[in-house]
Structure formats: C-alpha cells, structure tokens
C-alpha cells in the first residue's frame, strides 16, 4: 500500500499531459523561464480551437524556444537556426489540411531568419508564427539579439547595447501579416485565446510573447529573479487593441503595449495561386504557349 504522499504525487498530472511528450520530462528550461507556461497556453489554445491534433504540426528553429518542438506530442520538427518558416511553408503547402505552427525565438525569427519572416508575411502563407521574445540569445548564453533594448547589457554588449532593436509586431504588420498580437507570458488566458484565433484564421498570423529570461537577460541587467522580471513585465503591460503596431516599440522600462493589433482578411498565398492559375492553366498545353512549336 503506498502511503498518502506517494499516492498524491501519482495523482499529480499536468493538465496538458495528453499533448506533451511526458517521456521527455523534465525539460531543459531553467526555473522561472516563461517557456513552460507559454507551451501550456499554446496547447490550451489549440485545444480550444477544437481541431484534430493529428493535423497540427509544430516547426521550430534553434534556441531555448526551439526546443518546444521536442516537447509537444504532435508531428514536430526541430530544424535549423532561422529556417523554421520556410520548412513550415513547404510542409503546409504540400499538405494544406495541416495547421502549421512555427514556435521559435526572437533571434531565430528576426536575426538569422528575418528575411524568411517578412517574405512569408508578404506572401500571406497560411502558417502561424509564435515568437518568444526574451530580448536575448538564451541558448547560447546571453548574446545580443535584434530585440535587445538600447543600452541593455548582453555578453556581446559589455558596454551596453548600441544597436536599435526591432519592434517585432511593427515588422510583422509592415510585411503584411493578417494577424498580429503581443502578449506576455503572464497573459495565459489571452495567449491561449490568440492561439485559438490563429488556429482558426487563414493567412500569416504572428504572435509575440514577452518572456522572462532570468538566467541570462536578468542577470546581465540587474533584473533580479525570474519572478521579479515577470512582475516587472506585468506592471509595464497595458492592453490596447487599437494601438498602431508601428508605434509600440519596446525598451528597458517603458510600457509593454499588448493586444491584438491586426486581424484582417487578405487572400492567402494558396488562394492567390488558385485564383491566379486555374483559369489560365486550363488553356495551356504540355509544351509552351502554343502546341505547334513543341517547346
């Protein structure tokens, strides 16, 4: 007979256990990292969208966030640094029944993979991108990211960062994304709602999640513990769905404007392919333009 205590632990289940690779736990993320709750919110959102989990795929690049693909019990692909979006584009276009999520870090999606992000948004490929922004390169030990705030310290900015950071929601919106939102790792319910909306929505959807990194970002910037960081992000957060995504860049101490800034309908890449080719293709032959010249 097990004693009370062990019985209790046996009954302790993660609410998302069914959708996680429990045989891979414990995960590699530091305590107080935002990724655990973001992952939970993600799975919750997909569940709320009421889609067949067999038809949901997750593609990640490389980094702490890139490890998400390894923990979800879905068809999941841990690819190369920065290239999750084109991989996901191929996956989605070759099986258009799939719901494809890209979950990766700020460095992965906006530095090395920045070009793919803006072009996927421009094409309005029907994929959903979740960018976990911890303002730093977490996995490699705290180097500067394209999101690191001006004057913040990182291991490659020992005198403080002198580069202007990207405003991620502004970039995604400018490039043509159909859906653009920003939340922090503390906005669990809102996050899940956004994931649900993205799952249901056609076109390129982009979600930025502000996430605490105590191990390298806070340590370099006297940010205290992970909990302190979270509290700070919470206090600085204001929700304003009407904000212009171009006008809400982030810095070290200012407001973190959250919300769903863009939610519009624009023909997707594949819709345009079909409307653009269908009628014309019927008139073509196997060769070029006229069948007499045969090539």
């Amino acid at each position: 007979m097990p004693d009370d205590k062990s019985q209790q632990t046996e009954n302790l289940h993660h609410p998302m256990e069914e959708y996680l690779r429990m045989d891979r736990m414990p995960h590699i993320w530091c305590s107080s990292c935002g990724l655990g709750s973001i992952l939970t919110a993600f799975m919750k959102g997909v569940k709320q969208a009421d889609v067949d989990f067999n038809k949901v795929a997750v593609v990640s690049g490389i980094g702490c966030t890139g490890r998400v693909a390894g923990y979800v019990k879905l068809d999941s692909y841990h690819t190369t640094h920065g290239r999750a979006i084109p991989f996901a584009t191929g996956l989605k276009l070759a099986n258009r029944d799939l719901t494809v999520f890209v979950i990766s870090g700020d460095g992965d999606l906006f530095a090395i993979g920045g070009n793919h992000l803006i072009h996927a948004a421009r094409r309005n490929v029907d994929i959903n991108v979740i960018c976990v922004n911890n303002f730093i390169y977490g996995m490699t030990g705290g180097q500067n990211a394209p999101t690191t705030p001006l004057e913040a310290y990182s291991s490659t900015a020992p005198y403080g960062n002198y580069e202007q950071p990207f405003n991620l929601v502004g970039v995604a919106a400018a490039a043509g994304a159909s859906y653009v939102a920003r939340w922090s790792a503390l906005h669990m319910r809102r996050l899940a709602e956004s994931v649900e909306e993205m799952t249901k929505k056609k076109g390129f959807c982009f979600l930025e999640v502000i996430s605490p990194c105590a191990t390298v970002f806070a340590r370099k910037n006297k940010g205290g513990t992970g909990l302190d960081l979270l509290k700070g992000y919470k206090d600085r957060s204001v929700i304003n769905h009407n904000a212009n995504p171009q006008e809400i860049p982030l810095d070290m101490n200012g407001e973190i404007v959250c919300g769903v800034f863009i939610n519009k309908d624009r023909p997707t890449f594949w819709e345009n392919v079909l409307s653009g080719t269908e009628r014309k293709v019927k008139k073509t032959n196997l060769y070029y333009h006229d069948s007499k010249t045969k090539f």
Partner: peptide, 17 residues
C-alpha cells in the same frame, strides 16, 4: 523563395508532408 536557404528548407518540409 526569397533565397536558396529557404528553397532547401522548404523542400524538406514538403517531403515530410
């Protein structure tokens, strides 16, 4: 695609589909 890096990544994704 926007470059050959994306092209190569995309054909891997398509193959997995």
């Amino acid at each position: 695609f926007e470059d050959e890096i994306a092209s190569m990544a995309s054909i891997l994704g398509a193959s997995w589909a």
